[in-house]
Nucleic acid binder design. Structure first.
Lengths: 348, 348
DNA sequence: AATCGCCTGTGAAACGTTTCATCGCTTCGC
DNA sequence: GCGAAGCGATGAAACGTTTCACAGGCGATT
């Protein structure tokens, strides 16, 4: 029992036990209807008795194609990505496949390493939010090799792959409009680095919306990352401003940042939304459960993942008939108490 | 280019191009020192020119052993688990391997499905927080088959596998002691379902600590899950109590719950910690960034993952010499404002 | 009665590696 | 000048599947 080096019990042993050929065993596994119910039962019994488990490596070596799909995300700790993952997983699992999650942590080296291994594994396909702009050689190689790639949360002008994304300019615009409508005239944008397309787009959207209204000042507080810690630092900087120059509203490039800002403001005795209104982006679950529930721009995160996986599987199934598509979802605004104070228990 | 069905460029083509045998190419890849630097260079050139990428399936079929490690977690959305994953990934990546993350979502069926696929893949090893008690046949089978399994965040009496966990009874005790020392005499425990070992242990620990002090009432508010939503519901129930019966402190079985409770209390006009003190468990990052920073029982999450991965790799390297171990970490208390009000800007 | 087609089942080839016994050649020691 | 030893490279076997051309058996159609 459990002796090291013991021969794997393979299809061959099963065949021997059931008194059939290996081909028949394979048929039982892959096209059960092609074998008489009698022998089929005999084979199944043998499989159970021997505790046989199919060897995926051999199967895929022969088939030349795997049933696993990989998703490479920028940050597994960010609830935005975990939700995208859940959406993708749902679709892949339903198709009988397996989704493996890889974390690049925004580090190009780790991303390269993962991609190299995934290429060696000949994965069925790849969902990825690339660290950089996403034009690197490695991705091109995968595509040339015939491995479908879908860009997630990154628009793409390229025509050799699909992409799914959310309109970040529109999202920024929604946020800007909302703050303008609330009467704010001095607003800060907190986010960075601006090399991240999402950050730049959200800022551009807000800027455009405010320009249409006119007479509104949008100052930028650039951060080094999109984390809560960075948010707290930004809040400190803002609190240090003389009250007359201090913005009356803050638009954060994502919710982690907004949560940090919220804490920073509270620590410094500023109340949200009374003293400063605050709006985030992503509408992660923690936005709603924050002590001051956060107004945020909602992105269909699970759907992003689902759609990406669907496009991928479609291409994997039949690359000939598949036409590459670029799906862009619309975000929408979710208004909560961080921008609009509620009358406490007034209605009851 | 990119024509479907085109033959893979394999080790054979490389050998042809470099004018050597396949064995030599393999040697260049696996023991470079065993081949003259001259031929080695020729082979490497050929590899680059042809864009050759090793086929992992074939490699593992031959080797009988894979370089991927899998981790199956209960909930990828829970920051506790994402941190454990990061710790494990760090160790596995350093060893040149690859960590794949699978999500069971607390669903036994999904867990079974994942385990079945992982078994077919002959993964090098498995880190898992099982959905149930963790005695199922499937895990035993993997172990019999010679695949190392390490239980994560679940103690284990079994002697055929390693486990890493944190002492939940001690954690509960720390929380109970702290609240008692703060002078609370009417305390509520919010958590559930009690079939989850962690929940039961944390409650038991708190109970024991309070019994030692004596004269303290610990009522239980059982929840259906460990989510923020469940926490809000529990808070509603508590707020509905007459003030005289209402607890003056709440111990939540994890931070998600505590964040929900915090929001629920705030919504109902109760201030934390002035009206009710609140303590969570896990010390996830969001605990510190909540508007009222949460006192919480800290668990060494990344280290949990790192240690689990190390034990696994050790066993995978040399199963003979490996002795199974059960590592138990000690949690510690992190006191923040949710249990102890700070004098606002008093010291400056 | 010969032929055809269908249904089951067979056995060998192939997938791309790694490993290992072997071989030719050079160098060394005596 | 001859055997031993060492070095580099070779080629075939093996890993466990899937696939495919084919064979045998049998009932139905001419």
């Amino acid at each position: 029992m459990g002796v090291r080096g013991m021969a794997e019990t393979g299809i061959k042993e099963v065949a021997l036990r059931a008194g059939v050929s290996v081909g028949t065993v394979s048929n039982v596994l892959n096209r059960p209807q092609a074998v008489s119910s009698q022998t089929r039962q005999r084979v199944l019994d043998a499989i159970k008795e021997l505790g046989y488990v199919r060897n995926d490596s051999a199967r895929h070596l022969r088939a030349g194609r795997s049933r696993t799909v990989a998703i490479v995300v920028l940050d597994v700790s960010n609830p935005f990505f975990t939700d995208v993952v859940q959406g993708a997983e749902e679709v892949v699992a339903q198709a009988g496949g397996m989704l493996v999650v890889c974390n690049s942590g925004e580090d190009p080296a780790r991303e390269r390493h993962h991609l190299a291994l995934l290429e060696e594994q000949r994965v069925q396909g790849l969902l990825i939010t690339p660290v950089g702009a996403g034009h690197h050689k490695q991705l091109e190689r995968l595509i040339e090799r015939g491995i479908p790639v879908v860009l997630v949360d990154r628009g793409s002008g390229q025509n050799n792959r699909c992409s799914v994304a959310v309109d970040d300019v529109l999202g920024g615009r929604l946020a800007g409009q909302h703050l303008a409508e609330c009467g704010h005239r001095r607003i800060a944008f907190v986010g960075g680095p601006f090399t991240i397309p999402q950050v730049a787009d959200r800022h551009a959207g807000a800027l455009a919306a405010l320009a249409e209204v006119g007479g509104i000042d949008l100052q930028v507080v650039e951060t080094a990352s999109l984390s809560a810690v960075a948010g707290r630092e930004a809040a400190e900087a803002i609190c240090a401003l003389p009250a007359a120059k201090r913005p009356t509203a803050i638009f954060c490039a994502n919710d982690l940042l907004a949560l940090g800002v919220l804490q920073g403001l509270t620590t410094n005795g500023l109340r949200v939304p009374h003293d400063i209104a605050l709006i985030g982006y992503d509408d992660i679950d923690f936005a709603a459960t924050a002590a001051v529930p956060l107004t945020s721009v909602h992105q269909p995160r699970e759907q992003l993942g689902r759609t990406a996986a669907q496009l991928l599987l479609e291409e994997a199934e039949d690359a000939e008939r598949h036409g590459h598509r670029h799906v862009v979802f619309q975000p929408h605004l979710v208004v909560r108490q961080s921008t609009v104070a509620v009358k406490r228990k007034a209605s009851r």
